[in-house]
Design a protein around this nucleic acid. Structure first.
Lengths: 160, 160
DNA sequence: TTATTTTGCTTTAAGCCTAAAGCAAAATAA
DNA sequence: TTATTTTGCTTTAGGCTTAAAGCAAAATAA
């Protein structure tokens, strides 16, 4: 009976942890590594940030604009957070906010022509940076991960 | 020659983007979804944060302690950031910092007995939360992702 | 030895992020 | 209609995060 304890999970066999735990750690780690590089690129080359790019990308996908609430849900960030980010973009003339005729509490924000132009440049660079980050990953492996993470995302209940 | 433009990548066929781009978007998305849940759990149930847990976990793995620099490299965060987080943990008596006898600029920080006790409770809950997050993901798929992300992490050059 | 450079860390300024409180418009109930 | 509740958003307080500047110890060069 004492042998049970000897092979107990607590013995951490060097690549330790349960599969879920290892999945989580690796997921977070890979995301952090990529984010670090992108943040620096956005800062150095365009004097902007990843969150601002995210907002612009979401607006680019919706030419008719989005309310603050829909924006915050699309990006998985809090309402107050998008308030701040949109304010910055507004100050730079990259987005506009017009009152929602259907709802007096709400405003519809969308990219300005300048925002659209700026976004295209950012998106092109973003794509280039991503391609560089993953340049040494075999195509087959990328496809496999795209597929696996797609399923994972669905299971985690992403309502984007 | 005009047909070239018609099947151009810009036509975005509904599941759009290059494979690398899709990989990146999904990676970030899954990480964000998980982080959101963990953050809330740490806050609600233990009045602490994920970054503080990360520091404690790193120290738990190194019973002899770590310098601020090694800690910051292990966690992929800036030097100034770990200064702040360690200060909080110190104020709560969960870590101690003793001068490095080898280097007068440096201090070695490690978990106190209280920190060790608290960490065990946090780690147990953390594991439970992760298991819950991934409860609907088939074991085979978890294993596949663990494997794929492990390779990816290596290629991205994780020096942990 | 003395001067210079490098290294480990902290501080600071600024941006991201959240939860909770607050406010006003909209929807609902009475 | 009038009162109540809900909803969309902003504000606030507080924690995380970085880059850059600054400081002192250590390493190196002269």
């Amino acid at each position: 009976m004492s042998e049970v304890a000897v092979v107990d999970a607590r013995d951490e066999p060097a690549g330790a942890g349960t599969p879920e735990l290892r999945l989580w750690v690796r997921l977070l780690r890979c995301a952090k590594i990529g984010e670090k590089q992108l943040r620096r690129n956005f800062e150095d080359q365009f004097d902007t940030t990843l969150p601002r790019f995210d907002v612009m990308a979401a607006l680019h996908r919706e030419p008719d604009g989005l309310s603050m609430g829909r924006l915050s849900r699309a990006l998985l960030v809090s309402n107050g957070n998008v308030t701040a980010i949109v304010r910055q973009l507004q100050a730079q003339g990259l987005v506009v906010s017009r009152p929602d005729p259907q709802d007096g509490r709400s405003a519809i924000v969308s990219l300005t022509p300048e925002g659209e132009t700026q976004f295209k440049a950012l998106a092109e660079a973003h794509h280039r940076w991503i391609a560089k980050v993953f340049r040494d990953v075999p195509a087959a492996q990328i496809d496999q991960l795209v597929q696996g993470l797609g399923e994972l995302r669905k299971i985690l209940g992403d309502d984007s």
